[in-house]
């Protein structure tokens, strides 16, 4: 794996150089600031992984992270942020800019070694599964493989503000300290009757529809600086600073109105009448690591239960209408 490390501290770069030289199968390139990194990236086309310090003179690491992601070649490359920043705002902005994970400085050599090995295994797994990015009609990219998509299978959505990969969202939520997650909540959103749309549409159309919903969600939640991901089955989970404050009825009305205004169609020309619903928010209050991951699952379940409840209520309404 070829790694580019970007840090203004020569001691850290030298330490990384020593570490990587003692690891098998990896090469390290270094840059001392974002501008230098841009030059290295322009001259090298086979970088596999990035280690980027957040606070650097001139352009910071978050800005560099955003630039790396804009390069299609590196849309999926692991970007590990190195940071002595304790401020949650920096971490949030780094993930929103496309970071895959972060490592706190000071770091333990073993922790960094494990992170690099994990990144290497993920890249190998992706190559093994022949995963690739495909452009949707909206211009956004999604990940796909040669095997047919199943309804419950998540896929990556790229280039939509605040939308992360599932891996990145899990890293974010498990790494942040209990303190930092004090006020945050996880909220699930589901496409109602997702199974019917999945059965009726082509795989391409279904992926395209999910990307459109991701954009609608991202736009509607913009003022809350959301971090969200697609988890399969037409569902998204979203971390919000003040998620518990969202008025579900009001928010869903606004979201569904915006989706209606998008005037979405299948490639057959058929108009898609899509409705999303929102599950009960799950507070992350003082729940670290794996407990926080369980909150993601709970939020997902809450949204799907709400979708089922609404569909049952709708069925009941029509049945009553027929009896009348």
């Amino acid at each position: 794996m070829k790694i580019l490390a970007v840090d203004d501290d020569p001691f850290i770069l030298e330490l990384l150089d020593s570490l990587v030289s003692f690891m098998d199968g990896h090469d390290l390139l270094t840059a001392t600031d974002a501008m230098h990194a841009s030059q290295v990236i322009a001259q090298t086309d086979d970088i596999d992984c990035f280690l980027v310090d957040i606070q650097m003179p001139g352009r910071d690491g978050i800005d560099l992270c955003r630039e790396i992601r804009q390069n299609p070649r590196y849309a999926r490359a692991p970007i590990l942020m190195l940071t002595a920043m304790t401020d949650k705002d920096y971490i949030d902005r780094a993930f929103a800019a496309g970071a895959t994970d972060y490592i706190n400085k000071p770091f333990e050599i073993t922790e960094l070694t494990e992170q690099l090995e994990l990144a290497s295994r993920r890249i190998a797994a992706r190559v093994g599964a022949q995963e690739r990015l495909t452009q949707m009609p909206s211009g956004r990219y999604v990940s796909e493989t040669d095997t047919p998509l199943s309804l419950f299978q998540p896929f990556e959505i790229h280039d939509v503000d605040g939308v992360l990969t599932l891996t990145a969202l899990e890293n974010y939520i498990t790494k942040l300290s209990r303190n930092a997650l004090y006020g945050s909540s996880v909220v699930g959103f589901t496409l109602r009757a997702a199974d019917r749309y999945f059965a009726a549409l082509s795989e391409f159309d279904f992926r395209s529809l999910i990307v459109d919903l991701a954009e609608a969600l991202s736009d509607q939640l913009a003022e809350h600086s959301p971090l969200l991901t697609y988890v399969g089955n037409g569902s998204f989970v979203c971390i919000l600073e003040d998620g518990a404050q969202l008025d579900p009825a009001q928010f869903i009305d606004a979201l569904n109105l915006s989706i209606h205004q998008m005037d979405l169609h299948a490639s057959t020309g058929e108009r898609l009448h899509l409705r999303m619903c929102m599950g009960e928010a799950v507070r992350l209050f003082w729940r670290p690591g794996q407990q926080a991951i369980a909150c993601l699952s709970q939020a997902h379940t809450n949204a799907e239960c709400e979708a089922q409840r609404l569909e049952r209520a709708l069925d009941l309404f029509w049945n009553m209408d027929q009896r009348a």
Partner: peptide, 28 residues
Amino acid sequence: KHILHRVAGTAGTLGLKRLGQAATRGEE
């Protein structure tokens, strides 16, 4: 703050934990 930030990251990683922790407190 910038000096302390750098010391916090580097000293701690190089095993100078007491110096790194003092720098972190100062930076905060």
